[in-house]
Amino acid sequence: MIKIGINGFGRIGRAITRIISNSKDIEVAAINDIDNDTKNLSYLLKYDTIYGKFNHNIEFKKQNIITINRKNINFYSKSLINEVPWSKHEIDLVIDASGVENNTLNSKKILGKKLSKVLITHSPDKNIDYTLIIGVNEKNYDSKKHHVISSSICDASALGPVLSQLENKFGIERGYITTLHPRLSYQNLLDGSLKSVSNPGHNWKNYSLGRDSISNLIPKKTTAVKAVTKCIKNLDGKISGMSFRVPTSIVCASDITIKLKSKTSKEIVSNHFKQLSSSKNSIFGYQEEPLVSSDHLGTSKSVIVDANFTEVIGSNLLKMIIWYDNEWGYSNRVVDIAKFVLNKR
């Protein structure tokens, strides 16, 4: 049985815990969060406004223990990842879902014979050994060299497999991507200054990012393109993009415009991704019905291609729309990466 530790019990940490609870070959043994109210954290795991009530029996035992299906999970409230006694619980891999730079920096300090890997659920520029996106570059993963591994970000986890397929089959000359991303918990509900945004690590300069996230579409720069090109290096400098934070709670879309190197047609592109939805169905979905964002809530796939909006103008200007659940789909890939790297030991 693979034993997982989770550092940071926010929305991604809780989604990962729910997903692992449905697995037979992997379990969560320890969780660390700076919030020391374990009863409140167990309540948030049990009841979720977006994903509904947890479908497993969960009990709060005492301040530092909860049970899921009668299995104990030990809770800690340490400031840093290296302050948690992971080895006490025979942890194989720690998933750092805190988003805190110091935890990335200190990840190598917790590595040992048993605890051999750390997964970082964002895309740091330094202090990691490898960035891995399932469906893009897992073949280049080296278990002997790569120990602190980034699972990239939700947008890149969806965009990466699509762009990788386009690059490999048609070649990408240049392109532009617009992501539509739901509001996040640290954004302001009402207009405020950038200092009022409850994300202490942000370095935003654009005053619009402090505005009311419920009433506005908020344009912003995106890290999605940079995150993707870390894994598809020959696209660096060929694609760019931006993002809108939109007043919905969950599910992203991306509008992709690509000039391809080779000639193609709508039918060829559509058939290619339709086939992938069968041959690589954990990664790709393919949608022909006229659906909306909430119809993709809870999908475990990395990305769903919307066939209704695939177009080829001339012979090589491609337009695509994709959907992805930025929490549940991404968290499923994080769990897949955890299993993948541990099976490569």
Rank of each mutant, 00 (worst) to 15 (best):
R11N: 13
N64C: 09
V246R: 04
L342I: 15
T229P: 05
L217F: 11
I283N: 04
G135I: 04
S262T: 12
R333C: 09
S42Q: 10
R245G: 09
V94Q: 01
I34E: 05
E173G: 11
N343Y: 10
S249F: 05
L260S: 07
G112Q: 10
P290T: 11
R333Q: 14
R174I: 09
I12T: 08
K221D: 15
I65T: 13
S21T: 10
I110G: 00
L189W: 04
D295W: 02
F340T: 06
K263Y: 06
I133T: 04
D295G: 10
V118A: 00
K344M: 12
N281I: 06
T179H: 08
Q63L: 15
F170C: 13
L276N: 04
I120M: 01
A158I: 03
F75S: 04
V225E: 03
L163P: 04
K114N: 15
G10D: 05
F309I: 08
I95G: 00
G135W: 03
S98L: 02
N72Q: 14
A158V: 06
L80D: 01
K39Q: 15
I268A: 14
G314L: 07
L105Y: 10
Y176A: 12
K339S: 12
L41C: 07
D48I: 04
L217D: 08
V335L: 03
L180A: 09
P85C: 06
L119C: 06
G192H: 06
P124K: 03
N69F: 09
N199A: 15
F340I: 07
K88F: 12
S294P: 04
P247I: 02
I91P: 00
I6E: 00
W328H: 06
K274F: 07
E311I: 10
Y43D: 13
I214D: 05
E289S: 14
K3P: 09
T179S: 13
S77R: 08
V228Y: 01
E138L: 07
I149G: 00
D295H: 11
K88C: 12
G175N: 08
N332W: 01
N127S: 10
I232S: 01
I6T: 03
A253S: 14
I256K: 08
L190D: 10
G210R: 07
N281M: 04
I177Q: 06
T17M: 12
V228H: 03
S193D: 14
N106M: 08
N206M: 14
E83K: 09
G8M: 02
F54A: 06
V100K: 13
L41S: 05
D191P: 06
E311C: 13
N32H: 04
S265P: 04
I50Q: 03
N106I: 02
K78I: 02
N316H: 13
N206H: 13
I20Q: 01
N137G: 09
F284E: 02
V225N: 07
I337S: 05
K39C: 15
R18Y: 03
N57V: 11
L45Q: 01
L194N: 09
